[in-house]
Design a protein around this nucleic acid. Structure first.
Lengths: 336, 336
DNA sequence: TTGAAAGCGTTACCAT
DNA sequence: ATGGTAACGCTTTCAA
């Protein structure tokens, strides 16, 4: 049976109120401080956060609603959020909805029932209702890696357009004119932004866009594989391909192997996302990396501010710079 | 302001006791059921789990204490645990101690203060004290991917010895006689077991062990790189290498590239762990995979049983079979 | 500075 | 079946 504040008070010979004040850093006679601390030690007392939460109406917990916890992007960001929040005395309740709409609702419900003080959500597409539900309860919410259009909500994401622009530009500068893109689902904000970066780079360098060079995948390995083959089966295949996320890159590289193609001689390739294995591929894969740490830090910072009722810059949209890692998967003469 | 049970009771014109009974599936007049449900809907009432927990002394939460949530092994297992527990109405509070002893203690403290009903821990080495602390509080605890020796505790892990045996045997069957191993830290249980499998296979096939072929890494990328080079710099280097975890495999493969070596012609290689990229390497890397899902399921099953006070088979040690994926990174004539 | 007591939202006992 | 009420462990107000 765990010790309670009452037991501590009795052992120390003071009132419960005094113990509470001591524990929360209030003014207590030096003499009593010692007695209370002795009792705490003797009983190995630990405050019951459940009771505290009920009384204070604050759980010091923020919920994180993620589509999956098996993606390095997501866990990297979450890990950083956790770390930052921990410093400020907050815990995180992470729930994973396995890309399933129903489960997502249930999981959000759980977070709400547990009275989390704030929510971080990695939306996929249609969670406007969810976000509104949360806002209705006056719970701060920050979205990550996506923007829910037509809704006022803080959001933190990578500069997807900028990153995609940089990737495309890198290919263009290597003299590529026919650049294929394996894009994400047309309804996803990040996918749209990445595509936009690809478009802009073409415009800026006066290269015409070819419809057939744009293939929409589903951010999955299978679709990456399929799109890659579609692009390479064109009458006039691209000389370079930009793959816009991790899983599709795996699929595309599988197809590269199957076709026994040599990178970068036969094809230049550049990817978007965190690729732990990028450096050990032969050749290493050039990649536009997202700033995981900074994203996590920014999310934590914003949600902490909101929980302190600081709404000055609401809604805040933060786009963080990506990093292009140039390695050996892009070939061609460099112009410029 | 969120609705409370009292507000529901008032609106429905019944007592809070009746509402509570209704919510918890007790016997309530059909007429009242309807009235209460109507009030619940009207107010968008959601039970306050914090208050419920205080009263029932159960949080329906289990804590997961992991060294990091950025490893696919760990997140794969956690994801499965979450999923299974969710079905039974439990949530999971995941905390990540970033391989840091102090942080680990703090995080455990948080779990305890939050009154979790059970704890799953991925220990590294010296968490016997921690586990005892938990047991002292009568909180069920299950360890994953490690065995704390000299302590009675449920444990679920891959059959590390069997998997390592199989990997080594695979190499032996391809006529390799000088097989290097990049082992884990000598103090880690899983590392010891994997090494033991390597030893046993040598014994069973009457191949002498060579001290110099055993290199102890730290389960990190850097150490994998370093060990690989040490092995290949031997006067008589191995013809095959068994790398015993994910990170060291990345390091080793980096060294392979740097040396511009051709797998499997110049060296056979086999790895242990989940390697998402194994199949897209050229050649694909043969790998002994851990049964993530089954590990997660088993953990959930055991902790659920313990929380129900079913201690029949305590302490239960479960070793789950690994799977050898044969691909193209092992060469040699096959004997059998 | 201290302590008695109210009350957070819920459950569960017990009388009705 | 229903409802009044005590109790869970804590914080906070207010009087002393």
């Amino acid at each position: 049976m765990a010790a309670t504040i009452k037991m501590v008070a009795e052992l120390a010979g003071v009132s419960v109120a005094t113990v509470s004040k001591y524990l929360n850093g209030g003014n207590v006679y030096a003499e009593n401080r010692i007695k209370v601390q002795a009792a705490v030690d003797a009983l190995n007392y630990k405050v019951n956060e459940v009771a505290r939460s009920l009384k204070t109406n604050k759980t010091n917990t923020i919920g994180i609603l993620a589509p999956s916890i098996q993606s390095i992007f997501i866990t990297g960001v979450i890990s950083q959020i956790q770390y930052k929040l921990l410093e400020c005395g907050y815990s995180t309740l992470i729930v994973d909805y396995q890309m399933n709409d129903d489960l997502e609702k249930r999981q959000l419900d759980i977070l709400l029932k547990r009275q989390v003080d704030g929510i971080v959500i990695f939306p996929r597409e249609n969670e406007k209702d969810l976000v509104n539900t949360i806002k209705d309860q006056n719970i701060p919410v920050v979205t990550v890696d996506n923007m829910l259009e037509g809704i006022a909500c803080d959001a933190v994401l990578a500069d997807n357009m900028g990153g995609a622009y940089e990737a495309t530009e890198e290919l263009i500068k290597h003299q590529h004119k026919r650049i294929g893109i394996i894009a994400g689902p047309a309804y996803m904000y990040t996918a749209k932004e990445r595509l936009k970066g690809y478009f802009r780079a073409h415009e800026d360098y006066f290269i015409g866009l070819e419809e057939e060079l744009i293939c929409y995948g589903e951010y999955t390995e299978q679709s990456g594989y399929k799109c890659f083959n579609e692009l390479m089966n064109l009458r006039e295949p691209p000389t370079a391909i930009f793959v816009t996320n991790y899983h599709m890159t795996i699929g595309a590289l599988g197809a590269v192997n199957e076709r026994n193609m040599k990178l970068p001689e036969e094809l230049s390739l550049i990817a978007f996302d965190q690729l732990e294995f990028a450096s050990i591929m032969r050749p290493p894969i050039s990649v536009v990396e997202q700033p995981l740490k900074q994203i996590g830090e920014k999310v934590a910072e914003i949600i902490l501010r909101r929980m302190k009722e600081d709404w000055r810059d609401f809604p805040h949209i933060e786009r963080l710079k990506t990093t292009l890692k140039r390695t050996g998967s892009v070939a061609g003469n460099i112009i410029k």
